[in-house]
């Protein structure tokens, strides 16, 4: 396989792997196939999906470096955009199916509940990264592009906090996500010592 074929194959796989669960999810949800409370189910499913995809996105560059597979970097944007897609669905599920279009309640909740506030901040930041992810903009932005996209690490931590604050008692799963996030950040310690000069 040429490199282009590899990229094409992997991208096809990512499209299928990311979209199939979404199609299954909504078909099941509308046909009453997700248990007694489909609302909670679709919210949790898309939220965890967004976080999973964000973690996978952040695995790309360490893997590409470690195994000297530079072509892998060409699928990173697609993974990041799918994380954004799931995060948008997560918010849409909350507004449409949980709050049922009660926008004043939504605004109230964003202001009053810290875990929702930081979830919204993370999503807004992720939106900024997503809309600037295209090559034309990337070239235009020059060095600022990298500066902006380094915010992805902040987003990761915000999302982990959003998750742990949202659960009622059992924090074992969010703690596992925190550990994974920590590993992915630790792998980049050289980068952080460069972009955060004060930490020297």
């Amino acid at each position: 396989m040429t490199q282009n074929q590899k990229v094409f194959t992997l991208k096809t796989f990512i499209h299928l792997a990311a979209l199939t669960p979404v199609i299954w999810l909504y078909l099941s949800a509308f046909s009453d196939g997700l248990g007694a409370d489909p609302v909670q189910y679709v919210i949790h499913f898309t939220g965890k999906g967004a976080l999973n995809l964000l973690l996978i996105t952040l695995c790309v560059s360490p893997l590409a470096q470690k195994f000297k597979q530079g072509w892998l970097m060409q699928v990173r944007r697609l993974l990041g955009l799918y994380s954004f897609f799931y995060a948008v669905l997560h918010l849409a599920n909350f507004i449409l199916f949980d709050l049922q279009n009660n926008w004043s309640l939504f605004i109230n909740e964003v202001i009053k509940r810290p875990y929702i506030t930081i979830g919204m901040v993370a999503l807004l930041l992720l939106t900024a990264l997503s809309v600037t992810s295209f090559n034309a903009l990337r070239r235009k932005m020059g060095r600022n592009w990298q500066k902006l996209h380094n915010w992805v690490y902040v987003i990761l931590l915000l999302v982990c906090v959003h998750y742990i604050w949202s659960v009622k008692a059992n924090i074992s799963q969010p703690l596992i996500y925190f550990m994974l996030a920590f590993v992915l950040l630790a792998l980049r310690y050289k980068k952080f010592s460069r972009i955060l000069p004060s930490s020297r």
Partner: peptide
């Protein structure tokens, strides 16, 4: 502290669209 108690979702029958706040 983490959500409003002013309204609730009544679980009856049907899928996503049947959920009733």
């Amino acid at each position: 502290p983490r959500w409003s108690q002013a309204s609730e979702r009544r679980i009856t029958t049907g899928g996503l669209f049947a959920s009733n706040r």
